[in-house]
Amino acid sequence: MGTDEYRRVRVLWPDHLNLARGKYLPYRLAERGTRHCLTVLSLEYDRDMSPIPGTGFLEGMPDMDCHFDMSEIRPGWEDGVGVVVGDLERNGEPVPLAPRTVLRNAVSAWESMGFKPKVGIELEAYVMEPDPDGGWRPYNAPGSMVYGTGVRTDPAGIVRAIDETADRLGFRVESINGEFDMGQFELTLEFDDAMACADEVFLFRTMAMEVAAQNGHLLTFMPRPIPEYGGNGLHVNLSLEDSSGNNAMVDLSAPDGLSALAKFCIAGQLHHMSAMAALCAPT
């Protein structure tokens, strides 16, 4: 489908809770972008709001702009709808709290030192099925196992439908397999530049959850949705490419194969572990 054939453009952006916020725009008006309330960045999962600095909560809840490049609109998983990830701005400046702004600043910091961050992400998720009481229960896949594949691991074909949709839309899936517990799956995408990888995973997650919903199931990436089962992981594989295109994390002459830079990165993560936990593992 050519971009001029889209009936609607679905403009999405990741918020601070990793939720996909956005709007549908008629294609004829999409080039001008759209606007959202800045104060959405003060929302919590339960819809409570707090006067967080930088969100305009006490300043009249002002708008922010969402811009995107029309050439980046890609086929979506809804008929006649293209999808694109937008950037958030306020008064012509990037919104500091916007996740894409935060990531872009981190990438720029590495690039100023001569390195290009490369990231690969492995997702883990549970498929849930409806229970008789109107809630959700674990996917009934008694033949599932870690590294399981086939109909015994995915009897209703939910993950197969996600994989087929991803392939049709050009997502760069590296592998999909059963994880440790019943109804749990690992979905891995190929590594890429940090921003490209983050955008790809953001859209893939959104697509996967919606395909599952269309098939009457719930796909959840929550850290531990089933207390008696194991948790879902999110593996972020980071490497740094130097000016020659080599992996700066590797030193084949070292006994462990790690460069001094790689060890500095590990030391930095250990040093900031407590602060990182507040953002990466708040519960």
Rank of each mutant, 00 (worst) to 15 (best):
G86V: 03
C66I: 15
T101K: 03
G157H: 11
T283E: 12
M61E: 13
R47Q: 13
M249W: 06
F171V: 05
A166P: 03
I73M: 04
E241P: 03
V211A: 03
L252K: 13
V119H: 04
A212Q: 10
V201C: 02
E186T: 09
F68R: 03
D63G: 00
A212P: 09
M273T: 11
I158W: 05
D163G: 01
P96F: 01
G257D: 09
G120T: 00
N215Q: 14
A161H: 11
C280D: 03
Q214V: 00
G170A: 08
T39G: 00
D199P: 04
R8G: 00
S259F: 04
Y229H: 15
E241A: 04
F202P: 07
G178R: 04
M113Y: 12
C37S: 08
M207A: 08
V40G: 00
L169M: 06
R10S: 11
P138D: 10
R168N: 04
M145V: 00
G230P: 04
G114N: 08
L218D: 07
G148F: 05
A275Y: 08
V201D: 02
N247M: 07
A254F: 06
M222R: 05
A109R: 14
Q184V: 01
V236F: 09
E5F: 01
T188C: 09
M276Y: 09
T55C: 01
L41P: 02
N91Y: 11
E179M: 06
M145K: 14
C265H: 07
A281M: 12
V83L: 01
A277G: 02
C197V: 02
L189K: 02
D154E: 07
T34H: 01
P255H: 13
D48L: 09
A196Q: 11
D65C: 01
H271G: 00
H36K: 01
E186R: 13
E129K: 10
F180Y: 15
T149S: 07
V119G: 04
G82H: 07
R21L: 06
V81R: 01
P132I: 14
H235W: 09
S253A: 15
I162W: 04
A277S: 13
E129H: 05
L29Q: 10
Q214D: 15
D46V: 07
P130Q: 13
C197W: 03
R172V: 02
G148M: 04
I176P: 02
E78D: 11
I176C: 09
S71W: 02
G22C: 10
V159Q: 08
R224A: 05
G60T: 09
S108F: 01
M222N: 03
L189H: 04
Y126I: 04
N140I: 07
D87R: 13
V85L: 12
E241S: 05
W136G: 09
A109M: 12
D256S: 10
F171Q: 03
E164L: 15
L12Q: 07
S50H: 14
C66Y: 00
A109S: 10
M273G: 02
R35N: 07
L261S: 12
I226D: 10
A196S: 13
C37Y: 03
G143Y: 10
E200G: 00
A281H: 09
D48N: 11
E122K: 08
G170P: 05
M64L: 15
H36F: 14
E228M: 11
D15E: 05
E111N: 12
E210R: 14
F68L: 03
R35L: 06
R74D: 02
A141C: 11
P62G: 04
A198S: 15
D133A: 14
S239F: 05
G54N: 06
G268I: 07
V40H: 01
